[in-house]
Design a protein around this nucleic acid. Structure first.
Lengths: 243, 243
DNA sequence: GGCAAATGAATTGTCAGACAATTAAGAGGC
DNA sequence: GCCTCTTAATTGTCTGACAATTCATTTGCC
């Protein structure tokens, strides 16, 4: 591990990076214990607060976990899919909201990726995934649903579709694309007609997935994508004009 | 912002989460200055080191940046695509390496996503993207190239393909899928025959992209995906057997 | 001998106080 | 007006202390 630090730089940042690199390149293995804080102080020649700040940086990225007590310490953390999901969603959400990414671009990305899952999902979906999709479709037809709840259900529906592909890496990669869209979709006000149309697409899609008909599923998604972009275009430009 | 903390929990973690939530839900806007460390100490009723550890956690996620001096402080950071790329790649790489994700699963996810980009890239690629693709293909034919360099060039090629779609959100989402595969691919030893075959697919692909022929590009990617999986299957099982 | 309780040691979590480094703004002199 | 000096605010780092937690060892009792 690199232990010579450039002064007049942020020490805790450099230490965190040195340890992170050691984890990535395999010098530190999963569940291996890092040196104690005191030992790290010696190794890097810095005070304890500096070491601690470095460790907190790593903990924030789920790279390590810490445990108190004798035989405690910092351990290299096995990055779980769940943790990775969370990070991905946070990052994606902020990326979209902070960079004035327009609805159309985000929507295109999301549906392009989701289309890639459709054939796999059609092939491998279980009864569970189908049940979730049907349940969400049903929820979407309930009267009195707020726009937020409708969007949340939409996300859950698509999530089930993606998970149906049975590839955890794919599910992880799409977590950001699907979930980060929700805040953008929440800005749209849906008429009953819009909802009916969307539910129609969802039903078509669920039918295709159930029938293991990949091409049709992909086509339905394509139509839905087009409709959603259209919807966003008309609604968001309207609300912009009102300003 | 939530300021009441649960004792007997990690205080710095709770504080970091409270501030993170404030950023996500919009209470804290981009470039807005956070209260100074001293003020945060008062607000949360904790010592300065605790507050500092919380801030370092946020800095590690690129949520804030800090500046010294009068009128310095911590500021909400605009998450840049570049930063998001980096995080995504780190997370994806560790996720794959730490969870014994098999080559086939990762490969499937990667090519599924990449296929989604192909039609868009065929439609919108610029001369720049094409030039990069051609250059990387040329590099891949150079004799004496190490397996690592070959894989790196492969990644660069596919990166150009993805960027050709002209959708930054898509490029971001695929950064992890494409780059995190490299360590896995590095474990494969390529014969000259393998390389020739891959270059063939790459050329086919580049031709299709140049000719704005989306379907052919997608098909080429499909073949390449199949071949890569095949390659991984034979090579990795062999190396496993030798153990 | 065996078991429960007390003790001690190692380690992280938190706090307080100090000083260094950096930066912006203002004061003063020319 | 412009330069220099001072001052104040703020983060970065260090030190020392104590609390909380956990494990291993020892002690004491039966």
């Amino acid at each position: 591990m690199k232990t010579d630090l450039d002064d007049n730089q942020d020490l805790s940042k450099q230490i965190a990076e040195a340890i992170r690199d050691a984890i990535i390149n395999g010098s530190l293995l999963v569940d291996q214990r890092l040196p104690s804080e005191a030992e790290l102080c010696d190794k890097f020649g810095v005070g304890r607060s500096t070491v601690r700040e470095a460790l907190k940086r790593l903990a924030a990225q789920n790279l390590i976990r810490t445990q108190r007590g004798a035989s405690g310490g910092a351990f290299v953390n096995r990055m779980s899919f769940e943790e990775a999901y969370g990070q991905q969603i946070t990052t994606s959400t902020l990326l979209l909201s902070m960079n004035q990414v327009d609805f159309e671009t985000a929507c295109e990305a999301r549906y392009a990726l989701e289309r890639a899952c459709a054939p796999l999902s059609a092939q491998r979906r279980t009864a569970d995934h189908l049940a979730t999709m049907r349940a969400e479709i049903h929820r979407q037809t309930q009267p009195g649903l707020t726009d937020e709840a409708f969007c949340a259900s939409d996300v859950a529906f698509h999530r089930a579709l993606v998970d149906g592909a049975g590839n955890p890496v794919l599910s992880y990669q799409l977590a950001g694309a699907v979930e980060a869209m929700q805040p953008l979709m929440n800005m749209i006000t849906y008429t009953q007609r819009d909802r009916d149309r969307i539910v129609e697409f969802h039903t078509q899609l669920a039918d295709a997935i159930e029938g293991q008909d990949g091409p049709t599923a992909e086509a339905s998604l394509g139509q839905l994508a087009e409709y959603t972009v259209e919807l966003g275009r008309s609604r968001l430009t309207q609300s912009k004009d009102r300003r």
